[in-house]
Nucleic acid binder design. Structure first.
Lengths: 325, 325
DNA sequence: AGAACGAGGACAGGATCCGGCCTACATCGC
DNA sequence: GCGATGTAGGCCGGATCCTGTCCTCGTTCT
């Protein structure tokens, strides 16, 4: 990693890095690598333990040290490839809907890209371009890059400048104090105090263009609501277009539940079929997911979903018409 | 984070953690938090810089310190939620095919789970269960949990015990010295020295059951090949079922390339259409991806792909037949 | 112009760190 | 059971480094 190791703190950091490898290190080997006496290694290990890092030692002839799970996260020391892998994985996780950790994903990503060396940064962006295409049923997708910028601005309490495209298409320039990011389904909302309007506003992140952190720090401002998520929910619960789909699926309920973990309801009808209720903000996306189940199903509601499926079916059939068959 | 801060190395670690927050810290505030004089803080900052961590300072009245991108990855200090988010994201990235960083993903994941506190561990597994279902066109999927176990055993040089289900369905018990994990398409292979057979073997990870690290460490063994990936490629190039698909897509070549970054070839035919050649190990999966393009296309080869598409189209049409329309 | 902040030199006293030596204990292979 | 090899940790002397308190200087914002 780093060059010479004449410094105690540097050595401790390095030791932590070595111990993080999922292998076991004999003290003598550590001493050699860090160029200190074995006695010093023992003292360093003791120090790490005092600091709360759970260094486990296996006694005996083939013993050694290793870092095990403790009560707190130790600092992760990653090599280049691992850092890139994490950045790419996080970007994917932050963009798509995953459980309820979207916001934490974005925070972690912001933390990582802040310190990511530039030579790795362009590797990440290259890989990201190769990663996006899989899903995204339709509609505007949020750019994880923007998300991390917003997240960084929030925790840095920096004022933010961006262009905003309203629902009617009108463009406007905004200067805001960002307060919180709120994920909702496959959408993201930014809760911020709009310095131009002198009031709190909610912005859909996919409508934000060219966000730019001004670098100007502002004192924290109190949101007139208990929770940013609640604030967004109260304002937007009726505005988000959302469809309730109902379908009968000819597969065991548990199988369907495994593939639709966020379904509103999966009612078993009999051993081999069930009724599925799901809510998605994109019908195309929903149609695709039903088709991906790989089993027979019938759509009951809404009629638009049936329309989408018919279109998909027709397209698939057309695609084979000109073939050599 | 940690309690008292009377120790220099501990203070430096803590300082690094504070600086990692994407906000800016005035020296005075750091001095207060770490309970040392501002002069010492300045000295600590200087040390971090000597160690290679690029601490940036903004001069002037509202100045402060922050950690920026440098040439090496600093140790990442994550809070609980961020750690969980990374674990979940990595698991997803390791399971699906992402660029060429599958192996690094697994390594990073192994590193992380090794030190992940147990209270977070079960949160991760809960979230993982809700994450899997999206894609997986067909066929057996590799369990990322197994992958991390194998990766850990490899870097720890620990002997491994597992059950293996051969192609013909025969079950066998194996005791091996794991050497390397090789991702190939959406499959994973384990290159290992089989202690029972006294020879090198290649195992498909999705056929491995109940892997178990024995804890017995073995000296490294030399693979009779230059590279594990090459070794696998040489043995398996003809065994992996792989189809070359050819289709005409009515969309600009660049658009298609964006969604099929791993396509063998995308030849523009005219402004609005192109010829796509792609190789996938699952025709169902390929059919789905073509359909997800959201534009018209015609399949030329292979006939089986056309068959799959016809089946999909028929299923989609049937799904709408019983509806209220 | 003044305030707030980072950068850094000089210095003296004291804390810390290191290596070497010792003993005690656990584990594995023979 | 014995020896080899590993961790665990006490003690000590000497070298090193670290800290707080001065100080000055350059930068930036108000």
């Amino acid at each position: 990693m780093l060059t010479a190791m004449t410094d105690t703190p540097a050595r401790l950091l390095n030791l932590l890095s070595l111990l993080q490898t999922p292998r076991e290190w004999p003290g003598s080997e550590l001493a050699e690598r860090l160029e200190v006496s074995p006695r010093t290694i023992r003292r360093d290990i003791e120090r790490l333990r005092d600091l709360g890092y759970p260094v486990q030692a296996t006694m005996g002839a083939v013993g050694g040290y290793r870092l095990v799970a403790g009560t707190a996260m130790p600092p992760l020391l990653l090599d280049d490839e691992e850092a890139v892998a994490i950045a790419v994985g996080l970007r994917a996780a932050a963009g798509h809907a995953v459980g309820g950790i979207e916001e934490a994903s974005v925070r972690a990503l912001a933390k990582l890209v802040q310190v990511l060396p530039s030579r790795l940064r362009h590797r990440v962006s290259t890989l990201n371009e190769a990663t996006v295409p899989l899903l995204r049923g339709d509609g505007p997708t949020v750019d994880p890059e923007d998300l991390t910028l917003l997240a960084a601005a929030i925790s840095n309490r920096e004022r933010l400048r961006f262009g905003y495209r309203a629902v009617d298409g009108a463009e406007s320039k905004r200067l805001v104090e960002p307060h919180r990011l709120v994920p909702a389904g496959r959408r993201w909302y930014l809760v911020a105090y709009d310095n131009g309007r002198d009031d709190w506003r909610i912005f859909r992140v996919d409508r934000i263009t060219e966000p730019f952190a001004t670098g100007v720090r502002t004192p924290p401002r109190e949101l007139p609501a208990e929770d940013a998520a609640a604030y967004v929910a109260a304002k937007f619960s009726r505005l988000t277009p959302s469809f309730r789909a109902v379908a009968t699926v000819h597969a065991p309920a548990e199988e369907v539940l495994r593939r639709f973990p966020r379904a509103d309801e999966v009612l078993p009808l009999d051993e081999r079929s069930c009724r599925l209720q799901s809510r998605e903000d994109s019908l195309e996306w929903l149609a695709m997911r039903l088709l991906m189940l790989g089993c027979e199903f019938e759509v009951h509601e809404p009629p638009e979903l049936a329309g989408h499926l018919r279109a998909l079916g027709a397209r698939a059939t057309r695609a084979t018409a000109g073939g050599p068959g």
